[in-house]
């Protein structure tokens, strides 16, 4: 993986296998799919065994916050996808700006999440809290799943932001450049997966009231 920045484009001796790299990234994404998929199945089972209580608990979430965060993530997916196009065109500065915009959106998402969770903690709702444990089983399960699934997702947003931070630096260094975009593509793939998981988390937790 030690690509020299000065490799001449078209130099066939640079050892590279971009399709293989992307395939590897996709295989990793499938493991993520199973990780979250297991939780979605758990959610499905508990939702139907505690139907009324899940709907009641969902009313306690703020749909507006969820919608805003959905729009933020969708837009961040656009900016990271465009950054690859910009870099291919040789517009390095524009590409960096788009990656930076993605990072700002990631931060906005996490801040929203922070305030949302804080609000819940203030209301006495957090895993294992006396207030929560005094409620019916379905409500406890709902909020357990809510904190674990959105928490694990937020962790992915933090990791994705770290990866994209590296990309910003790597574009500046010429490690990621117009004729070698595969790292940025892999980072983008991870970011889009995080977006797709949210696309499902959002209706399941915020809309089914």
């Amino acid at each position: 993986m030690n690509l020299q920045p000065l490799v001449v484009p078209g130099d066939s001796h640079a050892h590279r296998d971009d399709i293989g790299s992307r395939m590897g990234m996709w295989l990793f994404l499938f493991t993520e799919l199973i990780l979250f998929g297991g939780m979605f199945i758990l959610y499905a089972v508990y939702r139907f065994s505690h139907f009324q209580e899940f709907q009641l608990a969902a009313k306690q979430l703020d749909t507006t916050v969820g919608t805003v965060n959905t729009l933020i993530l969708l837009t961040s997916s656009l900016t990271v996808a465009l950054s690859i196009v910009a870099l291919r065109e040789g517009r390095k500065g524009f590409s960096k700006a788009l990656v930076a915009m993605t990072l700002v959106l990631a931060l906005a998402f996490l801040m929203n999440k922070y305030f949302e969770w804080n609000h819940k903690f203030d209301a006495g709702i957090y895993p294992g809290s006396p207030d929560l444990l005094s409620q019916p089983d379905g409500v406890i399960l709902y909020f357990g799943l809510y904190f674990v699934m959105t928490g694990l997702h937020a962790l992915h947003v933090i990791i994705g932001a770290g990866v994209l931070g590296y990309m910003y630096w790597a574009i500046g260094q010429g490690i990621v450049r117009p004729d070698a975009t595969v790292r940025l593509e892999a980072g983008g793939l991870y970011w889009h997966l995080v977006d797709i998981i949210w696309i499902f988390l959002f209706p399941l937790f915020y809309l089914l009231q």
């Binding site: 656009l78 990271v80 889009h192 977006d195 696309i199 209706p203």
Partner: peptide, 13 residues
Amino acid sequence: ASIKSTMVLFTFM
């Protein structure tokens, strides 16, 4: 949600 994911998969990804 599935339609949205398909759109992300086929264009952005």
